[in-house]
Design a protein around this nucleic acid. Structure first.
Length: 189
DNA sequence: ATTTTCAAT
């Protein structure tokens, strides 16, 4: 029996995804696409969203990217089929998570990863991490109006309401995009 | 309890 896919609460989206905010939570929406084949995934499990576990919650904290890897592995996808994974994430991966994603991509050549991020998480070794992830084949870009609208329409329980952009959406997106390009174009030493 | 980046102070 098909069960309804869990949608993100409207306020979760409007509090966490806008690119003029800085939040202590990180949300990640994903879509899986199997090229030339059936994923074998149950209906409605090819799209979903995840959130990190913060230091304010019981147990060990965990960045959302690690939950994503856990989930991908749980699908046991056919390695003979090419899987395209698209993620929309409120912060770019930290250096450690970026390296773990890169390692996963190297070990799983049947999976390609495309990341759209709202904001750039810029602490510690984030720049080298993002470059490592790109070198492992991931595409990394900043979310634009198109991606925010797509997320709203695809993952949010919007009750029929249309996506409402905020004032600084385009300006921030363009600025962050330039910043990301500069990071990714820098040569590693 | 406060702060303004997946907490840290």
């Amino acid at each position: 029996m098909a069960r309804a896919r869990c949608l993100m609460d409207e306020h979760t989206f409007t509090h966490n995804f806008p690119n003029h905010k800085r939040t202590r939570k990180t949300y990640l929406c994903y879509e899986v696409e199997i090229l030339c084949g059936d994923s074998g995934l149950p209906p409605d499990e090819d799209k979903g969203f995840l959130c990190n576990k913060g230091a304010d919650q019981p147990g060990l904290p965990c960045h959302v990217e690690l939950y994503l890897l856990e989930r991908i592995r749980s699908w046991n996808l056919d390695r003979k089929l090419h899987c395209r994974l698209t993620c929309f994430i409120s912060w770019t991966p930290c250096g450690t998570c970026a390296r773990k994603l890169a390692e996963f991509l190297k070990e799983n050549s049947h999976v390609s990863l495309c990341i759209f991020a709202s904001r750039i998480y810029s602490l510690h070794d984030y720049e080298a991490g993002l470059r490592t992830l790109q070198e492992a084949g991931a595409q990394i870009a900043i979310m634009t109006f198109k991606e925010f609208k797509h997320c709203w329409e695809t993952f949010v329980d919007h009750q029929g309401r249309p996506f409402q952009p905020w004032d600084e959406l385009d300006v921030n997106s363009q600025g962050l995009s330039k910043e990301l390009q500069a990071i990714l174009q820098t040569r590693q030493n």
